[in-house]
Nucleic acid binder design. Structure first.
Lengths: 348, 348
DNA sequence: ACAGCGTGCTCATTCGATTGAGCAAACATT
DNA sequence: AATGTTTGCTCAATCGAATGAGCACGCTGT
């Protein structure tokens, strides 16, 4: 009999190792309670009423489990259940408020859905991203959410092949449903805000410069579109040289602005807080003309409102995005639709 | 025979569900390769040479595994190995640079040590913290690292009872080894920096005000000690009312300063970026006297250097802390020592 | 021809929890 | 007393991979 054998061996172990290994199992508890492992199992996982185990035995086992510091072996449990209850998230970085908030909210929402959140940070490295996805599949995750992935479709394809659901967040893919911010609308609104402020404060109306991000990146492209649309709606045309999509780093942003000393009103659309760092560095080192600058940033940081010249920031609605994403988990929909979540514009 | 039974049932499943469930197992691969599951298993986990499996069979199985998109079932594998390779980290928040960096570095270092990192964010809720620890123990984590935990000793005790190693990071406990910043020395250095600047810029020498944190919290206490020591070394004595350890929130910090309108030189020691937010808010709203203020912050944020009045920030050496903590993993040392890691002072 | 050895593989058991099936006793019903 | 029903529990198989033990074959040496 399986459990007796196990019990005996465990006993031998105890004799030999004398409590070095304290991992209590249901077999140990069964022996202690004078009951069967299956009774113990069902008592501890809450199915005991369904299985018509008596209250008395249940109480006894529960007390024993507490005394012995029992904790289920999730590996064994999940193996049998053929469910993992794990939701994986792939995130590029934790080093800014946006991804920090995503990670934090992700955990919270996952727990509300009775799922075990596992977050992996991939440093924007496509290989690491894919490795992370494979790892999550190995853990039999119920769903893998790729956030800001460089190659979301590769991940989706792999997940599909293993029968794992995948969802894209923040950056869309074409091979799985995507929940993303409404970058176009928010960029348009932010651009309008900057233009309004330039007019009000400086009596000047564009064109604005666009700084940061990469044009090949979907979100930057959508934001640029909104940026241009807001201006062309006012009859402003933006010279090509004003589009400085110089990548994601403070240094690059500062470099892009290096030669620029404003000799009159000017405005900037800053595409991320990381680029904003570069802008602020440049701005604070200007000998003259600093007062002629107005800028807004597509991204949120609590220190933003204290930066001189900053007229407003766009905060992405992380909570709404995650709620939407989690609503998709478990649905069999083969749709690869893009769901747009409106952003929150914070004007200063 | 176990594997034949499994093979047959799997086949039946395939017939019935026609590839809806694609989770390939070693039994599937064994059938396809005409080999035994044990051969397949050892080939895929790298022990095949030890087990004298031939190169030809190995090649064939490896190719098949790739073709079929095979991924080990970690649950089964770990159950058998009785090792999880999981390191857990309990972290209070992701919403500032410090914990963001900790989380990111933790993952990286864990991977370098061939461990699977699982991070849980507990919102500074003691119950959630403990639940998280229990969950990690259920997953048979090799080690649980508690960062900034409100009750690290409770976690350590529970882990010990289950035979799981635990380490405290950032905030010390008395029941497990602790790796923490050298708060005293860094606070002393930061205080000296602020005092120096006050003298140089304003021709004034203290006493400074201390803002933020909670005195019951070990780190705040150590920093306060350094703060006071630096001043008493210069013969400055600090009035009790200058110690405003008003907790961890921007609002609280702003409130603590609310009535204060400087009518002469003054200096502040700010105990965290979250308090710094409150300071900056207050500072930027001052009608007069803003120029008379100098402050430094015990915590790092890249926007810090652009804030007027900020003379320097202390950055905790996260990399060194984590390297030190990981060096402890697997050691059987029963020591509950505190290991102090020097901080990095960034003067502006 | 047979012992001795190396090579290449398979068998059967195990990890700990779950679960459909089923047994035995207590109790109710006719 | 015979039958049906409920209650309280146990059995045995199972999830997928890992592994000590061992089998069968071929080769070498004598």
């Amino acid at each position: 009999m399986h459990f007796q054998t196990a019990g005996k061996q465990r006993q031998a172990e105890k004799d030999e190792m004398d409590k070095y290994t304290k991992r209590t199992t249901i077999y140990d508890l069964a022996t202690l309670a004078g009951a069967s492992p299956s009774a113990v199992s069902s008592i501890l996982n809450g199915t005991w009423k369904k299985r018509r185990i008596g209250q008395k035995l249940a109480d006894r086992v529960i007390r024993l489990a507490e005394e012995q510091g029992y904790a289920v072996n999730v590996q064994a449990s999940l193996l049998r259940r053929e469910r993992s209850n794990i939701v994986g998230m792939i995130v590029p970085k934790y080093d800014n408020r946006y991804f920090g908030k995503i990670a934090e909210q992700f955990e919270q929402v996952a727990r509300e859905h009775e799922l075990f959140p596992v977050i992996t940070c991939t440093q924007r490295d496509p290989e690491l991203e894919f490795e992370a996805a494979k790892e999550l599949v190995s853990y039999r995750a119920e769903c893998v959410i790729s956030t800001g992935a460089t190659d979301p479709d590769r991940i989706s394809a792999f997940c599909r092949a293993s029968g794992v659901q995948s969802i894209n967040l923040d950056l869309p893919g074409s091979d799985a449903p995507s929940v993303i911010s409404d970058n176009y609308t928010a960029a348009r609104d932010l651009t309008d805000l900057i233009l309004d402020r330039c007019e009000k404060d400086l009596g000047w109306s564009g064109p604005l410069k666009f700084l940061g991000g990469r044009l090949t990146d979907h979100n930057t492209a959508a934001r640029l579109e909104g940026f241009l649309a807001a201006q062309s709606a006012r009859g402003i045309s933006v010279p090509d040289a004003y589009i400085m999509a110089s990548g994601y780093s403070a240094e690059k942003a500062a470099q892009a602005l290096a030669g620029f000393v404003p000799d009159g009103p000017s405005g900037l659309f800053v595409n991320s807080t990381i680029s904003l760092e570069g802008v602020v560095r440049w701005h604070s080192e200007l000998a003259t003309g600093a007062g002629w600058i107005r800028y807004g940033c597509f991204d949120w940081d609590p220190f933003g409102s204290f930066l001189p010249g900053n007229v407003g920031m766009v905060e992405q609605d992380v909570t709404a995005m995650l709620d939407t994403a989690f609503a998709l988990i478990g649905t069999q929909t083969e749709s690869k639709e893009r769901i747009l979540i409106p952003c929150i514009l914070r004007a200063f």
